[in-house]
Every structure is written in structure tokens, then in C-alpha cells.
Amino acid sequence: MIKLLAKLLRVLNSETEPGQISLGLCFAMIAGLTPLFSMHNVFVLLLVLMLRVNLAAFLMGLALCTGIAYLLDPLFHLLGLAVLTASSLESLWTVLYQSVWWRLEHFNNSIVMGSLVFSISLFLPVLLLLNLLIRRYRQHVLAWVQKTKIMQMFKASKLYATYQTLSAWRHV
């Protein structure tokens, strides 16, 4: 847990582009909230590896979102069922149902569909919001936080030592 927090601090305080961090977290949201062994997650993995996305942010986000997904399963089921049984979309699903690749994607499962609709819908808003928050953090909060007494105490703590160790590794 301490290492995870240290990693988060390291990423936030690093020179990494905010877009790379937020994109990693947003891809993690798709991969984590939807069933892990799904066809679309192979594509997500390809994008995560090929695009210059922050991998640490992706892995952290994946761990977090996978845990949350179990709590949100009932919501995903209801959402997915509503989408799959909507009469206006029936013809679309019927067409996709004929395709081997879409069947392999298992799109007709309520949780796959519900979690995919949920995470894709939130992808852009979360991306923009995280971008904004990271920038604001770096502009206003980071300098102020480092001057606070709590941060001073924190710097003297074991956690900060860990962070320093990791930073040192990074620059090796």
C-alpha cells in the first residue's frame, strides 16, 4: 500500500505528461471495470503498450478498477440488460450477433455490455477531468503541499524514504 502511494506520488510529481497519466488511468478503467478476459481488452492492452501511456498509472488504475468492478456488477447487469433488450437497438444487436468476432467478444452478456457502455461513456469526461486535475495539482497544490508542516513530517517519514529510493532507481 505504501509503495502504491509512493508510486502515485512519483507519477504525479514526475515530468510525465498529464495526458499520458490520465490516458493510462482511463484505459485501466475499461480493462478493470469490464471482465478482464474479454476480446476488447486485448485491443486495450495493445493500445496501452503501443501508445506512450503511463504504464504505472495503468497498472494502478487496473488494480483499483478491478476491485470496484465487483461492487458495481449489479449495476452493470441492469444497464447491460436494458441496453441489450432495448427494442430500438434489437436490429443492431441482431446484426452483430451474426458475426463470429462479436460473438467472441461476448457482447450479448449483460455484464460485458453494461460495464463496456459504462466505462466508454466515462472515458472522455474522466480523461479531461484527470488532465485538468493533474495540471491544477502541479500548478497550485504541489508547491503548497511541499511547504506544509504535514509534508515536512511526511518527508521525514519512511514513506518518503521509499519514494526517494524509487526516484533514485529511476535516475540510475
Partner: peptide
């Protein structure tokens, strides 16, 4: 935890 499959 597995959801349901809707068949078309």
C-alpha cells in the same frame, strides 16, 4: 457475477 446472455 456472470451476468446473463441475451440471445438474438
Amino acid at each position: 457475477g456472470k451476468g446473463v446472455d441475451v440471445h438474438f
